[in-house]
Amino acid sequence: MPRSELAQRIYLQLEQMGPKERQLAEFLLTHEAELAIYSSADMARLARVSKPVVSRFFKRLGYDSFAEVRQDLRKVQTSGSPLLADQQPADIGTLLANHQAQEARNWQQTLTDLQRLPLDAIAETMCSVRQIKVIGFRNSYPVALHWRQQLLQLRAGVDIVPQPGQTLAEELSQLTEQDLVIMVAMRRRPVNVKRIMQWLGKSPAKCLLITDPSGLEHAIHADWTLTCHQISPGGFASYASAMAVVSLMSNLCQQKLSDDSRVQAIDELFDLMDELEPSLGG
């Protein structure tokens, strides 16, 4: 279960919330450790919703005033880590059911957000640019690495940066309007993500940001933003929707690249070097 009274109230009503309320709810749940120092105006700005949305949201949860919200938050001793959540034991059946239900909600909300975007145009850019640089730190790195691996099956010129022993400045200094940077910036990002995104917003290259609702403050510096929802019944955030978005966008790119000679060449080299286990039945 969530660790604070506020989080418990949010989870009880999460399924009935509209898009803006859910966006605010996910911001609050992923920033619970810092909320006691924020004003209601800060929350509205960081969650990218209006002040009236914040006011209605807390009234919906049963709070008479924002001061009452802060009082609840200050009762909870936190250090910012989701692992400090007060988890109540649950039987395996309940745990599986809770995860299944939450993952379904995460993916449905992610799809709803994606439908507002020009996905064809994004995929076309991913196929046609001269090179793609993929960036991801901490928990975002596995998502970035997987995306690079998927795209590398389809086209050349895809790198994850910075490489060991290199700096971002060395990797990004020569970007042109013919290049694309994919920034994977899921929750609990390093502070330098803000500086990098500000620089990318001024660079000639296109920028595709993939983040969760808590990172939408960086969207102003990106050409496109893919929002992935990460709420989890436990202390660890879910990356299932982020990985699914990587698969979706990679499949869109595959449809647009009619020449499969690169894939065939890679498969032939796999066979020659005997690098992969054989598939079932083959």
Rank of each mutant, 00 (worst) to 15 (best):
A36L: 14
A36T: 14
I37N: 11
Y38F: 15
M43E: 08
R45N: 10
L46M: 15
V49M: 10
S50L: 07
K51L: 15
P52L: 02
P52Q: 03
V53W: 02
V53F: 03
V53I: 14
S55Y: 08
R56P: 00
R56K: 13
L61Y: 05
Y63L: 04
A67I: 01
E68R: 12
L73F: 06
R74M: 12
K75M: 08
K75T: 05
Q77C: 00
Q77T: 10
T78L: 11
S79D: 13
P82I: 04
L83C: 04
L83D: 08
L84P: 00
A85T: 06
D86R: 13
Q87G: 00
Q88V: 13
P89T: 03
P89A: 08
I92A: 15
L95G: 02
L95D: 09
L96M: 11
A97T: 10
A97Q: 14
N98I: 01
H99N: 12
Q100W: 06
Q102C: 14
E103D: 11
A104Y: 01
N106Y: 10
N106I: 09
Q109H: 15
T110H: 09
L111Y: 02
L111W: 09
D113H: 13
L114I: 08
Q115R: 15
Q115S: 10
R116W: 05
L117E: 08
A123T: 09
T125R: 15
M126D: 02
V129G: 04
K133P: 00
V134D: 03
G136A: 11
F137V: 01
F137C: 06
R138T: 06
N139V: 03
H146D: 13
R148V: 05
R148W: 00
R148Y: 00
L152R: 09
